Simulated assay, not measured.
Amino acid sequence: MVMSNSLAGAGLGAEGDERSVAERVRKLADRLVRPTAPARDRERRWDPELFRELAEAGLAGALIPPELGGAGLTARETFALLEGLGEGARDPGLALAVTVHAVLTAVPLRAFGTAAQRERYLPGMADGSRLGALSLRQTQHTGLAPTVTARPAPVDGDGWVLTGELDLVAVAPEAHHFLVVAGHDGRGGRTAFFVDRETPGLQITDAGPAAMATCPWGRLVLHGCPVPETAVLGTVGGAADEVEPLLAGLDWVFTSAPWLGVMRALTRDAVGEARERLLFGRPVAHDQSARFTLADLAARCELAAGLLYRAAERFDGAGGPAPRDAAAARLFTASAARAVTEEAARLSGPFALTGDHLIERAHRDALFFAETGGGSGVLRPVVAASLLGVG
């Protein structure tokens, strides 16, 4: 491990705080990731060496216990880590891939996996040699009909047979394991599985959105895939009460973390543009409306940070955050990301001084971010149901 890059030297745990984590990762990402972000985005290219360097720094195993090779950070520290990655890297696609691997697949395995499952998978996930993936369609916890079904293996066999398709699978082309939630025909309920890439009948094809171009995307097709009983994650038929609520909360909060960093980067750029860009011979910063816009950018960042950090911190408690808190934080952040991007674009004009086209990339990706996690059509009902005491 390269100790100058490692989180081991960041003074974490009892002696550290989230701002030191965010700043250390911001500097690391600024040096390692940012220089190639525009080119990788244009080419829709995944860089395995870049991910390896981030894994060596501890990002891949942030929430994995030290005894299994991880950094053993708290949820709040991990949120700060992802915020710093978003701000320094200025690469929402790569940040999403890291979050899917390090949080959305690793945490359910840590929470509901057996000791054997944790020992088998988590060390490789912690060092980045084995990547985890899942479909962002399966993080909404909305009761939608599953697109994958599970049926018991033939009487002379063991385990389950999975059939169906999943799209919008982040990290799919590079992944070694997949978290799959499947329904049961005729018996109700849903079960979560941790499925190996080498499983017979499993097919991965390249397919994904135009947004988040530096995240590898794919479609997962399961042609009667046999999986052993040891692939079950949690209780058979219990995913709706176990894995799915956890996935929804993790998605709503932790995939928002890099966007808080991106918003901070855009705000910082906007301040620089306002100071340097001239309008009718005077710096834009002398214009009162420009100053109001800068104030709005800063306010949106701080309001989002307050909501998100509060929700993230509650993952360290016994019950995790209330669905209302996680959903409200995501709802506000998605709206703020779009507003900050648009207002920063107005301040910067057609020729942004940074030259890395972050505004254009962020505008495209923020639209996608706003629709994932179920979008406002899922998030607002969650908040409203909690207020009304009916959910």
Rank of each mutant, 00 (worst) to 15 (best):
V253G: 08
A370N: 06
R364I: 03
A339I: 03
A298L: 13
A285C: 02
A336E: 00
E276Y: 06
S335H: 04
A334F: 00
A337G: 02
P283A: 10
A336W: 00
L279Y: 12
G238I: 08
R310C: 02
V340P: 03
S335E: 13
G355P: 14
V262M: 09
A305H: 08
A362Y: 06
S256R: 00
Y309M: 05
L279Q: 12
L266P: 13
T354I: 05
G320S: 14
G306N: 04
S348I: 07
A322P: 03
A270T: 13
L278E: 08
E342K: 13
D325K: 01
R277Q: 14
G238C: 13
A240F: 06
A299W: 03
F369Y: 15
V253Y: 01
A248R: 15
L266D: 08
F369H: 09
R314T: 03
H286Q: 09
V284H: 04
C301Y: 02
F369D: 04
G373Q: 07
L247W: 06
L260R: 06
V284N: 02
L279K: 10
L246E: 13
A336C: 04
L250Q: 07
S376M: 03
H286E: 13
F368I: 00
V243M: 13
A322T: 11
E302Y: 04
V284E: 01
W259A: 08
L266I: 05
P350A: 14
P350C: 10
A257L: 12
F332K: 00
F368L: 00
G375F: 04
D325N: 01
G374H: 04
L353Y: 06
T333K: 02
T341W: 02
D316P: 05
S256T: 04
D269E: 15
A336I: 02
D269Q: 14
A311N: 01
P245W: 05
G272Y: 09
R346P: 01
R268F: 03
P323G: 01
D241V: 10
G355K: 11
E313S: 14
R364V: 12
P350H: 12
A304I: 08
F254Y: 08
G249L: 05
S335W: 03
D316N: 04
T341A: 15
V284S: 02
A270N: 11
G281F: 10
P258I: 09
W259F: 15
A304F: 09
A329K: 04
E342T: 11
L297N: 07
L303V: 04
L266R: 07
G261Y: 12
V284Q: 04
E276D: 13
H286I: 05
E343V: 01
V340D: 00
T341F: 03
D241F: 11
W259Y: 15
L347K: 12
L246C: 14
E244G: 06
L347F: 12
I359S: 04
G375W: 06
H357G: 07
T255S: 12
L246Y: 09
G281D: 09
D287P: 00
A318K: 11
V271T: 07
L367Q: 13
E371L: 01
R361E: 14
G320F: 12
A326S: 14
G281W: 08
R277N: 08
R268D: 14
L347P: 14
A239N: 08
A318L: 15
D287F: 07
P321N: 10
L250W: 03
A334D: 00
C301P: 05
F351C: 07
D325Y: 01
F280W: 11
E273S: 15
A248Y: 01
D296G: 02
R346F: 11
D296S: 09
G272M: 05
G317E: 14
E343D: 14
A240D: 15
